[in-house]
Simulated scan of single mutants.
Amino acid sequence: MARPPGHDRPLYVRTAMSLKSRILAGHYVPGQRLPSEDELAATMRASRSTVRQALSELRDTGYVTSRRGSGSYVADPLPIEALSPQSGPVYTGFLDDLDNEAHHVRERDRVQDTLRADQWLGARLKVPVDSPLVRYRATRLRHGVPYGVATDIVPLSVAERITPEVLAAGPTIVDALTLAQSRVAESLQRLEPGVLDAADAERCGASPGDPALEITGVAYDSTHTPIDAYTLTITAGYGIGLHLTRTTLD
């Protein structure tokens, strides 16, 4: 889980990420006109020049469009599928902040099978219903200690590049995707409470019905193409730390 944008990031990037989180949470919907630069500057406690740079960043990444003489609008469609307003807030961060943590994470007992896309998976991976998919399941470990079960479902066109050699060299499927030239550039996920079923409990050395945290999401490559519909079931006792700061932007 990526941490919130920190002070090591340029001010306009932090402002862009805050605005992006509101878009992905449904506060601003596709096609909606955004408040003026002055209004955004007041709302986000940033200077107008910082807001202008932030909007430029969001235009470059496909989240905002501009109309001469009219202002800035939320892109329609968005590069990635936004969460519904009922999903709660979206906290933004940076994937490269996970690099150090990834060195401590491994998967074991990895298995794979094939399945066909139902309507739910088809919508998330942007493939027709009944398209072939490949599913990977593995026990996830940190410093050698099991903490959850990872399920990754990828389109067949992506899975064909994940050869046995790539799988052997990739500590996780995310690493394997990078080695297969399908590096994850962006992902959007939701967190919900859950319980362990018998199979996941056995993998983690826990008991069926134990509380768990379900992280489900979709990962995209640099072209905004969905390449992985994933679920990470985390067992009780594994903590995720968040460092939160409040900054006056100027």
Rank of each mutant, 00 (worst) to 15 (best):
D60W: 02
E107C: 00
I23D: 09
L78P: 10
Y63D: 14
P85N: 13
Y91S: 09
H243W: 09
G31I: 05
D8W: 11
R45P: 00
E107Q: 01
P146E: 05
T92I: 15
G122R: 03
Y12K: 08
I80A: 15
R183I: 04
V149C: 11
L133K: 06
V195R: 12
L98E: 04
L191I: 00
A102P: 00
V154P: 05
A168T: 12
D38Q: 07
Y238Q: 07
R203K: 10
L121F: 02
P5G: 14
S182E: 15
D97W: 02
I234Q: 07
Q86L: 11
T225A: 15
R48N: 03
G237W: 01
T178Y: 11
T65Y: 07
R110N: 00
L58C: 03
V134D: 06
T245E: 11
L95N: 07
I234M: 08
V64Q: 10
L242Y: 06
R137G: 02
V184M: 05
S21A: 14
T172Y: 02
L40M: 04
A201D: 03
T216S: 09
D8N: 14
E81I: 09
K20A: 14
G122T: 03
I240A: 08
D38I: 07
E57C: 09
A176C: 11
A75I: 12
R45K: 11
T233R: 08
H243F: 13
D200H: 08
P193Q: 00
S72H: 15
A82N: 13
Y63T: 10
H104D: 01
V51R: 08
E57M: 09
P79G: 07
V184T: 13
E165T: 12
G170E: 00
S56T: 07
R33G: 08
E39S: 01
A117H: 01
T139F: 03
D113Y: 01
S18G: 14
L156M: 15
V166A: 13
V158T: 13
D210V: 01
D97K: 03
R3V: 13
S157L: 14
G71C: 10
A198T: 08
V127R: 04
E57G: 05
A150D: 13
L40Y: 00
G205D: 04
G148V: 06
T65G: 09
A206S: 10
T172W: 05
A46K: 02
V105E: 04
L179S: 12
W120Q: 05
S21H: 03
L188D: 01
D221Y: 11
P30Y: 05
I227M: 14
Q119L: 05
R135T: 07
A16K: 07
T247G: 10
R67V: 12
P208S: 08
G71H: 09
Q119F: 01
P128T: 04
V134P: 07
H104E: 01
D228N: 15
S18I: 10
L156D: 14
G205C: 06
L191M: 00
Y91H: 11
A236N: 12
